[in-house]
């Protein structure tokens, strides 16, 4: 009798494992939105140990993956797909840079949290437009905190700062 009793809560722990994810936008849809009418050419990179260390030192943030998912636009701009840590799951986002490395736009592709979805609002994302490598992108300073969504807004800002460092250290023409 006892063993059955204690197993019941364990069954509950397994129950929600099949929960579904929410995708607001596919990669193709994000590319079409952020680079309308432009052809994007895949240009993925595998970050070296030295590059990861340099990005960490420059941005204060460690890349979550060594695979840099990047596409090059015909006009010299870049489309970069990446993730940051959300409250419970990863937040997938895309960063569009112009040929000079300034932010054209930020889009949230996946957001799966119970609250904090304001990071998807255009008004909040628009504050990144025009930012370049070297911008502080600190929550509460040059990036507005979203009260009630502090973790998500902090991590998205950190992620954009990390990708601007990645651009400057890995992708920018001056690197080559």
């Amino acid at each position: 009798m006892k063993s059955r009793f204690y197993l019941l809560p364990l069954a509950l722990l397994a129950a929600p494992a099949a929960a579904h994810a929410t995708t607001y936008m596919s990669v193709e849809q994000a590319q079409a939105l952020m680079f309308p009418g432009e052809a994007l050419k895949p240009d993925p990179r595998a970050l070296t140990d030295a590059q990861v260390a340099a990005i960490r030192k420059d941005s204060g943030e460690s890349p979550l993956s060594r695979e840099l998912k990047a596409w090059r636009a015909a006009d010299g701009g870049w489309f970069i797909l990446d993730q940051v840590v959300g409250k419970h799951e990863f937040i997938t986002f895309a960063l569009a840079l112009d040929s000079a490395g300034a932010v054209r736009s930020v889009e949230i592709l996946d957001y799966r949290e119970s609250y904090g979805g304001q990071v998807r609002e255009a008004a909040w994302r628009s504050q990144f437009v025009g930012k370049r490598h070297g911008a502080a992108l600190k929550l509460g300073q040059d990036v507005k905190n979203i009260s009630g969504a502090t973790l998500s807004s902090k991590h998205v800002a950190d992620g954009v700062r990390r990708l601007l460092s990645t651009y400057a250290l890995v992708l920018a023409p001056s690197v080559h």
Binding site: L8, P9, A11, L12, A15, P16, H88, R112, S114
Partner: peptide, 19 residues
């Protein structure tokens, strides 16, 4: 205990995510 918690779990498992 088990039925109470399982019923809650089963009710919401379809849309489940948490905090």
């Amino acid at each position: 205990l088990g039925l109470g918690l399982m019923s809650l779990g089963l009710t919401f498992a379809g849309t489940a995510r948490a905090d």
